[in-house]
Amino acid sequence: MEILVCARRVPDTSENEISLNAAGNDIERDELVYSVNEADNYAVEEALQIRDRVGGNVTVATIGGEDDEEILRRELAMGANQAVLISDDAFSGSDGKGVATILKDFVRKGRYDLILTGVQADDGAAQVGGMLAAMLDYPFASLVNSIALEDGKLKVSREIEGGNREINEIDLPCVLSIQTGINEPRYVGMRGIRQVASAPIPTLGASDLGVDQGAVGEAAARVKRVDYFVPALSKGAEMLDGSREENADKVLELVAAKGGLK
């Protein structure tokens, strides 16, 4: 099976102290450390496991610049067969639809049976997967937390609010957005990354993919960020300051009151 995983590089939320920049329209990006978006990493692991079961290839693609190669190397070290960097000045400032358009043209250049994305990027809006499927006219399932392959069809399950699960059958080719926790991604150490340090990573631009430049980039973006701020702490947080036992009892009581315990 030919599998494509669309991944992104994001500031690592667990390793950064996120603060606003002076202009107030973005976060302060100096001194940030980045890593592959967590859900995307689960998608790569899932793709590798499917490949190891049924054979085929896993390709990881990302849209970005030179810096983003870092995550492609990591995914190669994890075991992906190839990685592609989709990069062009014309792409910068694209909104979700622009990103989906670029990916659509990339997908049309190849032959993929299955396209996986993470359920959403840490700083994203969970929109690209669905739009990409619509543009390709492929079926789409979101929030997937298990995948089984049965005679050319996929059985995917997703979690429903409240902890129930639903199983859907879906035809190939299709697009799935993958939920974290679907598997246990393997560890990639420094040694693995060094071993793929010289693996070639092709870069494809707008003309390579035949992207309609009028449909992408900042000019085409119809969703624009106008503000970015840290919300003020609101009321409603309740501090428990009793003894450990009292606090434990109180927490139990609160959870039960909200229907969390049956």
């Binding site: 667990s14 390793e15 450390v33 890593s35 994890m78 246990e184 393997r186 560890y187 990639v188 420094m190």
Partner: peptide, 21 residues
């Protein structure tokens, strides 16, 4: 186990942080 990527999730985060920070 590390070489095979077989590392508990609970250890992956701190190892990654040691690498970057």
């Amino acid at each position: 186990m590390i070489d095979d990527g077989n590392v508990p999730q609970s250890l992956q985060k701190p190892l990654k942080a040691l690498e970057s920070r």
